[in-house]
Amino acid sequence: MGISRRNFFKILSVAGAATATARTPARAWESQAPSEAYGCIVDLTRCIGCRKCEQACNEVNKLPPPDRSFEDLTVLDRKRRPDEKTFTVVNRYYSGRIDERDQLIPTFVKLQCMHCQDPACASACIVGALSKQENGAVNYDVSKCIGCRYCMVACPFEIPAYEYHDPITPRVMKCTFCYERVANEGKLPGCAEICPVEAITFGRRDTLLKVARDRIKENPGRYVDHIYGEHEAGGTSWMYLSAQPFEKLGFVTLPDHPMPRLAETIQHSLYSYLWSPIVLFGMLSGIMWAFRGKGERQEDHEGGNL
């Protein structure tokens, strides 16, 4: 027993050393972000909370009619989240600032899918139903989806919603970045087009970043010096400018590295060309072969059966 265990570890360590020398270090993880991605800047100092973006989104995406009219601004009294019938919502925050007439100044925050540069949902999706498109949209292909909802687990912004009440063909529902309109019809996303004050600026992501930096520079005191989404979660296509610190407006603080990096690095360094399972298989075969004599020595062994 003692000898066999020593043998066992000897074989293990030899095999391990062999694989370690044979393998070059795993390739560094690389971002798959498209270079020509479109994006949007949401300027919270401009947003007036009119909910027109919600209305346009509803119409463009042919979503079910809302419970309460889009002109009813009392829905802002309660914090909402995007759900399976609403791809975007506007919430109102009071950060405590008051104007010269002692009125609290509201800040309105539009929420929707951030269309990450390296989306966690797309990395997680078991069948690749979610994918980052060249134009920046994170697109959902319902024909591949099996409904595992791992995308929802993975999303750091908690955006994808699910049609939980459809028993057979539920879909993952989230902002599409009006993919069809932008890619095929050359139009703008519904919300960006309708916004009366251009709180949403649509354009190439790199251009937008320049625009955003210029806005911060040219309006001293108007903005906090932070473009939310420039680096968050490795960068997102939708980005925000604000007068208040983002933590006060319900924005989640996220690391700067892309969410999928760690899991994908582990995954690819272990399983590229299935090298580790093959090596393990070989090692186990070797062990089994080495120990086969012991097996024969013991009686009543049913011919290789279990």
């Binding site: 703008l188 009366p196 251009e198």
Partner: peptide
């Protein structure tokens, strides 16, 4: 809105 040649210029409606 969102002219590529003048990305900083807001559109008429805005």
């Amino acid at each position: 809105a969102f002219r590529q040649d003048h990305p900083e210029r807001i559109g008429l409606k805005a």
